[in-house]
Write a protein that binds this DNA or RNA. Structure first.
Lengths: 207, 207
DNA sequence: AATGTAAACGGACTGCGGTCCGTTTCTTAT
DNA sequence: ATAAGAAACGGACCGCAGTCCGTTTACATT
């Protein structure tokens, strides 16, 4: 399964291949930090994790945390990495109707349903990752979904600016909105999925 | 023209009527602060305004700034108040096709076009207001657009969960996405408006 | 005018994300 | 083994949003 790298190895540069021999102490600290971060999220929720408390828990300096993950958002992205990769694998290579083999509209519908459930499980982390990320639309994972949606729209025969249309559909599934609907207004996941189905069906058929 | 109060008089309580006799010094400081805030935004942009610099410029203490506006977001909302009220007035009471009198689909299309232009003019403030506002969907203005879109959808004969559908359309027009499209990807306002037209047309006709 | 009191004031203080830079540790070459 | 250089480390430090609470000010009542 192909993996899109979510955390650049060097904070500054563009996404390099992740392997390239990391120094022993760096690797150890990364493991320490990820473990400590998961513990803290478990105990206090994503919002309850502070970079200082994480450093303390892992027994490293605060500078090390930022050297490793770049920012709070980067850390959250790292914590999400596996879940994100799983989701990507499912819609790109998994079984239909989510994966290839089903008609595009069916894949679109399945994509939304899958994403909604994903958000309900990992949304708090995703929200924390998005917050204070000026570039949430340019994160590799976001670009990938966008392209995927755009491709499905094209396959479904949508010729009217599929790039923007994919963007419109994409924001519809963002954690912020989904969690707000569910938590504040008590909307059920099924109702959200049904609404998504209506939306993409109309977008595809309306052409 | 009816005005929806955007800034609660008392930070804690729900939106009370704005009149209710404000103490003379409070009123003076509010005017001072708003004027200073506009100057600072003019000079350094919304992101360049800090609450401390605002307090200094207005010649008041920092506590006063927070007492008056509650938070940075509240201040930005206050700065947007007039622009927001103008927009509200236009889509609720203005001339068609934006205001009442035109068929619902035409009003929906006009709503998007108007909002896009609005965001291009005031978007930076709106973005600053949204950022770090955990409740951006519950801000009075947002609730109002949501209801408006929902109503238009119903009038247009959309029976499939108009509330959620209105929410989906609504996030599509958020400053974050619009500004990102324009500034990072060079999308023209016209192209955005056209895409919105396609979207709402399909949503309405697809039923 | 004097007085009581509720409201507003102001700035020191806290907590957080993020940066900086002198110090330490790993790795490689000799 | 050792020395040199690169990379990682760590915690003091900064700027900012937001809070707290002792002090001041405006208004109403007499």
């Amino acid at each position: 399964m192909t993996r899109v790298s979510l955390i650049p190895v060097r904070p500054g540069g563009p996404g390099e291949p992740a392997a390239e021999s990391e120094r022993r102490d760096a690797a150890r600290n990364r493991a320490l930090l990820l473990r400590a971060a998961r513990e803290l999220v478990e105990e206090a929720g994503a919002d309850g994790l502070t970079m200082a408390s994480l450093a303390a828990r892992a027994g490293v300096g605060k500078g090390t945390v930022f050297r490793r993950f770049g920012s709070r958002g980067g850390l959250m992205l790292a914590l999400l990495s596996d879940a994100e990769a799983g989701f990507q694998g499912r819609f790109m290579f998994g079984p239909p109707p989510l994966g290839p083999g089903a008609p595009p509209l069916a894949r679109l519908i399945a994509f939304g349903a899958e994403r909604i459930n994903w958000v309900l499980e990992y949304g708090e982390l995703a929200r924390a990752a998005d917050a204070s990320a000026h570039n949430r639309f340019d994160v590799p994972a976001a670009v990938l979904w966008h392209r995927h949606l755009e491709m499905l729209l094209r396959e479904a025969g949508v010729t009217a600016d599929p790039w923007l249309m994919a963007g419109a559909l994409s924001v519809t599934l963002e954690p912020e909105r989904i969690l707000h609907s569910v938590r504040v207004h008590g909307v059920s996941p099924e109702r959200l999925a049904e609404s998504w189905r209506e939306l993409v069906t109309r977008v595809v058929r309306g052409g």
